[in-house]
Amino acid sequence: MNEIKKIVKDYILEEFLPGEDPAGLADETPLVSGGILDSMATIKMAAFLEKKYGVQIEAHEMNTKNFNTIASLASLVQAKLGGK
């Protein structure tokens, strides 16, 4: 789980927050409601997770609950990996 969080965090920092201090991005930092992930970024994030972990994210899973924090994203991936 921590490994997933780290990978997700690194991806967000690299793709959406270049030059920002990694310390400012915590597991519970609001990504969607905080404006870091907009709809385009959310799609990119989903595509990244699908490719990286070989999971399939469904349309109805593209919501604030799943995508709002690094922790919730990691949980989503974990659940999908666990269900495989």
């Binding site: 793709e15 959406f16 920002e20 201090d21 400012g24 385009m40 970024a41």
Partner: peptide, 16 residues
């Protein structure tokens, strides 16, 4: 949107 998707849209953490 297509342009943004290709180039990426940078955000900030509100520190700067």
């Amino acid at each position: 949107s297509i342009l943004e998707n290709k180039r990426g849209r940078q955000q900030a953490l509100g520190q700067r």
